[in-house]
């Protein structure tokens, strides 16, 4: 797929951990192992500002639908709430272990976070209410709900449409639905993946989601029934998967483990973003650029661009050009989004 135009390659000093577009898609948030969260203009790659204060790898970031608040989770065992506009840290929650994943609820009223299983502490999932009145510094210290998922630890999570139900991906490759009120596992698919689930991104209307895994495959699940709808099998471990709006594609990224990279050539490393047809489960194209594994992929909410963050410290923002929208590689077929 050569129909892309790279406008920006923002640079972190260390490998990227997660990138996120805001609801309008004009801003791109990126966090990395260099302790800093950056926000960039997505159209030209200019840096708007940084969010400093974390004292460890920032593992995860999410922004609310009004682009007012942003939350981050880091290896310094903190979960922080930031004011997007000013870069101020509004509130800090402290935990015994690192925060691996955060996510806003659709209506911005709650956030969910996963803390790492380490040093005798179990993996925990906590849900906080976000007080949106005032300047945002007045947050409750205690979580609204907290529970420890039984069995394999959770690695990724997101809110679903059903109230009080979140969807999680686990180290064992399991995908499950949890009731946050009592911590019950409502439903699960133990065999969703064969290895650790590395990413989970919801569709626009949250009725389905895509997961990526080290087992070299990505899958689309129905968020209600956890039925696997589509499977995309590649030949490389995957770190991230995203769903493109408008066009029926999914974007997969990954590559050789960082520790194996030096022993293989660049061509071998498979550090490309792969475009797969969402319905036909066929690869339609690849975009090269990174010279390390791709750690995270995000698609512009309007479907006009996508960004990928790599182990090499680069964020590459690709804008789809006209031919991407015009091209109908499979003929005239109406495919619902």
């Amino acid at each position: 797929m050569s129909t892309n135009r790279v406008t920006a390659t923002p640079r972190h000093e260390r490998s990227l951990t997660q990138i996120k577009f805001n609801a309008e898609g004009d801003l791109l948030f990126s966090c990395s192992k260099d302790h800093i969260i950056n926000v960039w203009y997505s159209h030209n790659g200019e840096r708007l500002g940084t969010y400093e204060g974390n004292n460890g790898t920032v593992w995860t970031v999410d922004v609310d639908s009004e682009s007012r608040f942003m939350v981050s989770g880091a290896a310094d065992n903190t979960l922080r709430l930031w004011a997007v506009a000013t870069g101020k840290c509004l509130y800090t929650w402290e935990f015994p272990t690192a925060v691996k994943r955060v996510a806003f609820k659709d209506d911005d009223s709650q956030i969910v976070c996963i803390t790492e299983q380490r040093m005798g502490h179990q993996c925990a999932i906590r849900v906080f209410n976000i007080n949106r009145d005032g300047d945002g510094t007045n947050q409750s210290k205690e979580p609204l709900h907290m529970f420890n998922p039984i069995g394999s630890k959770a690695t990724v999570c997101a809110f679903t449409l059903t109230p009080n139900i979140i969807i999680t991906g686990h180290e064992s490759g399991k995908v499950a639905l949890f009731n946050i009120k009592n911590g019950d596992e409502v439903d699960n698919n133990e065999r969703a993946h064969g290895d650790v689930v590395t990413d989970l991104q919801m569709s626009k209307d949250s009725t389905y989601c895509i997961t990526s895994s080290k087992d070299k495959s990505a899958r689309i699940h129905d968020t209600k029934t956890l039925m696997v709808l589509k499977t995309f099998t590649t030949e490389t471990p995957l770190n991230s998967a995203a769903i493109a709006p408008i066009k029926p594609y999914v974007l997969l990224g990954g590559g050789q483990e960082a520790m194996n990279v030096t022993t293989t050539s660049l061509r071998q490393g498979k550090f490309e973003t792969r475009f797969w047809h969402k319905v036909f489960e066929e690869e339609v194209g690849r975009v090269k650029g990174h010279f390390g594994p791709i750690n995270t992929i995000a698609v512009h909410p309007a479907g006009t661009a996508y960004a990928s963050g790599g182990e090499d410290g680069f964020v590459r923002v690709h804008h789809f050009d006209e031919s991407y929208f015009r091209a109908k590689p499979y003929g005239d077929l109406e495919i619902a989004d």
Partner: peptide, 9 residues
């Protein structure tokens, strides 16, 4: 797929 999407909607 379209049928499933319609159902979801």
């Amino acid at each position: 797929w379209n049928a499933w999407r319609a159902l979801c909607k």
